[in-house]
């Protein structure tokens, strides 16, 4: 098996580490979300919580813990949606000609960028997890060491599949766009509705039917579900709603993300086969 995609990945990571401003901002941004939005909102929501006491025997979680999973998901989405941007740069600056004229199969271009998107999302997720635990997110309650390891691996699995899917989507967009402004516009247009029709910051159970249906097709929802089940547990109480995840639901969520990733991979593959730069 040829491993040229590692080369694409290597270069993309070199650039990621080298652009100090990009690196630092991408690491700080999620922490800022947690610290400001999370703490601010949780101070309000915790007051509502007292009007809806949790049923007996079910673990009640605070807002900060509830939204921490959402922040991981959101960060993964934004990072991945921008992950294909380097392809647009390579295209407009002509650097892609070197790769397209090489014997490397074009699939590897997509795979390499995808892998780099995954690794960036993993790094950010681990940072948010650590930072969250420091400022009082109640993740991994009562878990022993092996259970903790499984939980973290589970989160990374969900984040990995999800960001692979979104990086492929981003790559497909980048390969068809001519300008960075156009790409920015598309990313904003995609990310806003995805973010607000998901269960990242609030429950979707009380959504009107239309929004609920949209949320059902939203990959972000499945990612958040996956992260919560591994980080908090399969049975908890928040916002006056009792959450009970069966392993079937978790598998379904993972399956939905895998399906999403396969679709965006095909899109990216189709786009990279058609791209011509002279």
């Amino acid at each position: 098996m040829s491993l040229e995609f590692i080369t694409i990945f290597w270069r993309d990571m070199l650039r990621f580490v080298r652009f100090r401003a990009l690196l630092i901002s991408s690491l700080l941004q999620p922490a800022i979300w947690m610290a400001f939005f999370g703490v601010a909102m949780s101070s309000s929501f915790t007051r509502f919580g007292t009007y809806a006491p949790s049923p007996e025997g079910v673990m009640a979680i605070g807002y900060l813990t509830f939204m921490a999973a959402g922040v991981i998901a959101m960060t993964s989405m934004f990072t991945s949606l921008f992950g294909g941007m380097s392809l647009l740069f390579d295209k407009t600056f002509g650097l892609m000609r070197e790769m397209l004229a090489s014997p490397m199969p074009r699939t590897h271009l997509i795979l390499g960028i995808g892998l780099s998107g995954v690794v960036k999302a993993w790094i950010q997720s681990l940072i948010i997890l650590s930072f969250g635990l420091i400022i009082g997110v109640n993740f991994f309650q009562g878990k022993n060491f092996p259970e903790l390891a499984v939980s973290i691996l589970g989160i990374l699995l969900f984040v990995g599949v999800f960001s692979l899917g979104f990086t492929f989507l981003s790559a497909a967009i980048a390969l068809r766009q001519e300008s960075h402004e156009g790409m920015q516009g598309i990313i904003t247009m995609l990310s806003m509705p995805l973010f607000f029709t998901s269960n990242a910051l609030y429950p979707i159970e009380n959504f009107p039917v239309i929004l609920k249906t949209i949320a059902l097709f939203n990959p972000l929802t499945y990612l958040v579900t996956g992260i919560r089940s591994f980080a908090i547990g399969d049975h908890f109480y928040a916002f006056g709603i009792e959450y009970l995840y069966s392993s079937g639901e978790i598998l379904l969520a993972l399956g939905a993300l895998v399906l999403f990733t396969l679709v965006t991979f095909s899109l990216a593959l189709y786009s990279v086969q058609r791209v011509t730069i002279t």
Partner: peptide
Amino acid sequence: IVFQNEVLDRDLTVWESMEFHGRLYA
């Protein structure tokens, strides 16, 4: 190939540019 317009990643070093190319060609 030496392209008409410069095709160099300005954020890679001289060695890395060569290394990248060599890896592309396995």
